[in-house]
Design a protein around this nucleic acid. Structure first.
Lengths: 203, 203
DNA sequence: AATAAATTAAACCAGATGGTCAAATTTAAT
DNA sequence: ATTAAATTTGACCATCTGGTTTAATTTATT
């Protein structure tokens, strides 16, 4: 039954996503995923041959989501400053809705780098690089940003937006002791990170 | 036997540290730790009552190391700019020697926030906060940094230095496709992150 | 050397885990 | 309605896992 099949398979996938996000590959239990989906455990193996395949499906979907959030940075017809503001606003908003995504991806990529390499082998980063360079040729010159600095710059953008989520529990524990609310902190961060970066670039 | 006991216990601890750093709590196997230490599995339970206790010992040691790296920032008698340069140079150098530490701590704190809360309950962050504030009262005013910005600022320092290591496998996979060497990138980062931050603060 | 205590090893165990299988049930096709 | 195919279930299994136990061996004490 097509309709039913889709429902069950989706239910499994959604449950698996939740459990894997929370517990990681090693910590997740097939039984927990089945229970969470309200189905029999052998159905997991019926729809997805094994834990590894089920995990892969979830992993690729989530990694895809993460990458998609970077796409607009290369598309949008905005000035460099506008793009920086746009990036932090949209990316942090996305992470607010998917707070566990960063630590999940970072940890699982770390656990199995080869899987990640295979996943991104089709991507043409060189082309994106060139696009970015051409789009902002004048601005990069104006800000005195050399091509050799780009990896430092790009990873700093990622760092400023992703780190608070990857380190969420860590920061929350400390913030609590200082009377700081994590959600407020994140809300502020959209603007802070943008202004911080823009100031750092101006000379 | 005192001498031998210490050797065995240390050997166990070092092996456990390596395995836990690599595989995390869930992925680590007591058998692997024993094999790595070249001893019988029951010795693990003889010296450390359980996997959980062994893990805790390792976790607390490593978390302590990480915190210690922040201490000089509060001690050293340096200007704010000097401190920023000092921080990135020393902290990143430390992480070069302990590259797996960040993702391990972030993941395990995330997996069990309560354990982390207990670990840091004795720390007086308020006091450190005040110290920092007093040390740099004039500079903070000069740079127009308000106290409300400090969490954003401090977490940005951490982000810029920690993120590249937490995301190491991720970045490495992409860098490889761009012909960038990760170690070179990290070496550059000590200065880049410092200058980036200092520029961001100046007005 | 004799004895007690600490240390190590080997075998073992109960529970958990991913996965299988045969049978039953539901759905689609004739 | 009958048949074939797809879906679901419950029981079951081999393996793995953290941990225990018992006995042997080594070390320290007298």
């Amino acid at each position: 039954m097509v309709e039913r099949e889709k429902l069950t398979e989706e239910k499994i996938f959604e449950s698996a996503t939740e459990i894997f996000l929370e517990k990681g590959m090693d910590g997740a239990r097939m039984r927990d995923i089945a229970d969470h989906a309200g189905i029999n455990k052998s159905l997991l193996n019926y729809y997805y041959r094994s834990k590894d395949r089920l995990f892969n499906a979830v992993y690729e979907k989530l990694a895809g989501q993460l990458f998609d959030m970077f796409a607009p940075v290369f598309d949008e017809n905005l000035s460099l400053e506008e793009k920086i503001r746009y990036f932090f606003r949209e990316h942090i908003s996305f992470l607010q809705k998917n707070p566990r995504l960063p630590i999940f991806i970072l940890y699982e990529v770390n656990r199995n780098p080869e899987r990640f390499r295979k996943l991104i082998q089709k991507f043409d980063f060189e082309a994106l690089w060139d696009t970015l360079e051409k789009q902002h040729e004048k601005e990069l010159a104006k800000y005195n940003i050399s091509m050799e600095m780009l990896p430092q710059l790009m990873s700093s953008l990622a760092a400023l937006s992703v780190f608070p989520f990857a380190a969420r529990s860590f920061l929350e524990a400390i913030f609590t002791k200082l009377g700081i609310d994590f959600d407020d902190y994140i809300e502020e961060r959209k603007k802070f990170a943008a202004e911080f970066t823009i100031k750092a670039l101006k000379r």
